[in-house]
């Protein structure tokens, strides 16, 4: 028993366990999602997070300890973001053609997302920290965390809520497009990337490569513009 204990102490300190737990959690979550007929309600990322949180709580591992190892997976988010340049390049002609509509839609979307969030949270009596952590919810997590820090929210709470937003967007988006009769894949992709960042982008790539490219563009553009707009907006509103 003592030996087993020593082994556990050793293993939980090595990144191996966290990485394995992350991948196993994701594989199980993907399997559950497939069994549920690919329903966005059971988004693999959300299910994986729930499974991993349950597991860590059960074995008494803290988030810091887990992240120590899981950061190696987290790190790949950087190069993956850079890689979004490739689908963008592939559809450059279409992007050029729609340049101004995209910019106008992007700025309208950023203001809509931030103002509606702030209004709803304040109307329902949420705390100031909740308002500020939620404001950047439609922005891709690395940028959203930076914005939250800047305006006075909790970056790690923002990171999680950004993901929940993404999953919600994946559920509502397709229903909304059917209802509004929006059939253009570039419009669908851009809208998904703006409201649901990386999740919307990942889902759009399963629709078509042009939807994915526009979603990636929207995600990058929304992130960059939000980094400028949101801190100013929060200051202007005096929150």
């Amino acid at each position: 028993m003592d030996e087993l204990n020593t082994l556990w102490v050793y293993l939980s300190a090595s990144p191996l366990l966290s990485i394995m737990v992350t991948i196993i959690g994701f594989l199980i979550a993907s399997h559950i999602n497939r069994m549920a007929g690919g329903s966005a309600f059971l988004h693999p990322v959300i299910v994986a997070i729930a499974l991993i949180v349950a597991f860590l709580t059960l074995v008494g591992t803290s988030y810091e300890q887990y992240f120590e190892g899981a950061q190696f997976i987290h790190f790949l988010l950087g190069p993956a973001t850079v890689a979004l340049a490739i689908p963008l390049f592939d559809h450059l002609e279409r992007v050029k053609q729609m340049f101004w509509p995209l910019i106008i839609a992007c700025i309208s979307g950023i203001f809509t997302a931030a103002l509606s969030t702030i209004a709803i949270v304040i109307a329902m009596g949420g705390s100031r920290e909740t308002v500020l952590s939620l404001t950047p919810k439609s922005v891709t997590s690395p940028i959203a965390m930076g914005i939250a820090e800047k305006i006075g929210g909790y970056p790690s709470l923002t990171a999680g809520l950004v993901l929940v937003t993404g999953a919600i967007g994946c559920v509502i988006g397709p229903i909304m497009f059917r209802w509004l009769k929006i059939e253009d894949h570039s419009v669908q992709g851009f809208t998904m990337g703006l409201a649901a960042h990386g999740f919307g982008t990942a889902q759009s790539f399963t629709v078509s490569s042009i939807a994915g490219a526009f979603a990636g563009l929207a995600m990058g553009l929304t992130g960059m513009l939000s980094a400028f707009i949101l801190p100013l907006l929060v200051r202007f509103l005096g929150i």
Partner: peptide
């Protein structure tokens, strides 16, 4: 990398447990 984009969000998301 892009085909595993969703997996890469998991470690940050588990951070919700802190809050």
């Amino acid at each position: 990398l892009l085909s595993y984009l969703a997996l890469l969000f998991v470690p940050a998301g588990v951070g919700l447990m802190v809050h």
